[in-house]
Write a protein that binds this DNA or RNA. Structure first.
Lengths: 113, 113
DNA sequence: AGCCGGAATAGACCTGTGTCAATATAGATG
DNA sequence: CATCTATATTGACACAGGTCTATTCCGGCT
């Protein structure tokens, strides 16, 4: 997954201006975070004891159709924020803490100049 | 600016699921970060010695029209990531490190469970 | 006052995207 | 095999958003 590579190699924003390619890679992830439903999904997964959540639990937390939730899960998965695993009839989603951590580091601008 | 309040009161994602209102507030900021041009603008400002950049310098760094850059600056300003100050004919933009810091903290998920 | 340059705003256009209903797929179970 | 439940995919639609041109606004200068 090349996104993680970009993130891992990216110094904080203040280090030096991002080039177009780096910016495009990082923007994909932030764009995924730029939706309230996806943020809530992410926080549901993140705060879940055991670290994984069944899709049905997520669907139940929203007044949105099942395909809509499935769509959002796919977006989060595609940018490397979540992974999924099927067990029997159910699919479980987990955080990818590395991705979140890299984003966090990227935004961690040193104190005012 | 109520956004900062939301951010300041928000524990990390893993603490407990965001409610709809919190998620909407935070999503606004991430949405602003979810564009490559805006990320580059932000990194230009962040990496600038002295902490401020004239609009003309930003415009010069892209092959985009001046109104387009102005639009992106407005988006970043509206969500509290930048502030601006007019001096004579020029307008200078600065980071709001608090906002970045809060986002960084929000994403800072504790190590795997 | 009039002009000039830097920056912001307005409006139009086109693409991207969040949502849904309908359908398909996967696995379990009778 | 038939069927049921859980999840994913497809296609359609409406709205949001990035970009441009044209215009306006704001300071400084002559």
């Amino acid at each position: 997954m090349e996104l993680l590579e970009i993130l891992e190699c990216s110094p904080p924003l203040a280090r030096k201006p991002l080039d177009a390619e780096q910016a495009a890679g990082v923007a994909r992830v932030f764009k995924a975070l730029g939706d309230p439903v996806r943020l809530r999904i992410l926080s549901i997964v993140a705060s879940r004891q055991g670290g994984e959540v069944c899709v049905c639990d997520i669907t139940g937390a929203f007044e949105l159709s099942q395909p809509t939730i499935s769509h959002h899960l796919k977006v989060l998965k595609d940018v490397g924020l979540l992974t999924s695993e099927r067990r029997a009839s159910w699919v479980y989603y987990r955080l990818v803490p590395e991705t979140l951590g890299e984003l966090s580091a990227l935004l961690n601008v040193p104190a005012a100049v």
